[in-house]
Amino acid sequence: MNRAALLVLADGRFPAGGHAHSGGAEEAVTAGRVRDVASLEAFCRGRLHTAGLVAAGLAAAAAAGYDPLLLEEAADARTAAPALRYTSRRLGRQLLRAARAAWPCAALDALATARPRGAHQPVVLGLAARCAGLTPLDAAHAATYESIGGPVTAAVRLLRLDPFDATAVLARLAPDMDHVAAEAADAAQRVQADGPAALPAASAPLLDITAEQHAVRGARLFAS
């Protein structure tokens, strides 16, 4: 157990490509649905309890040592939009590169060999956490934080929000993050017995629709 590794893994400066992605925030801003601190917070709450919860479940299960290739399948089944599957695999590939440099580990090497074009990001995140000596709950925390940390940073750039206000959004959602991470880690405990169907699958229709809108937009700052 090495708790400080969680700070390294969850740090926004961890070089795994996240800075170029807004987690759907750019499209929500373009559509006018996110325009201030309050709507950003509502966006983040929704994303946390859907995409964030799903990512946390997958990450926790991978951190618990469940077969990453079965989790890949589970991630596909939970990601209806091809733009989001594509983004997840690209980010997974970038994270795999960073994680292998940070925590060299046979399990990460094996996943890179099995999925040279990238595995789903939450699966890689969980496996990286495992290789860093972290627990499934730690991995779930990293995933939940990431699920809204990226959109908040993006919104600061897109809307010129006061960065203190934006950070306060994350702080206000911290209890929600704890709750989501715990729920995800609980579900991951049931995976060995019940299979990946035990993992959360919360969907967000607007995130699916807007991900495809964003993917064909010519002028945009963020990759997703």
Binding site: A20, S22, R157, L158
Partner: peptide, 13 residues
């Protein structure tokens, strides 16, 4: 694409 941070994409990440 570099998410509003071109220098990050060539230096930090």
């Amino acid at each position: 694409r570099t998410g509003a941070c071109p220098h990050t994409a060539i230096r930090d990440d």
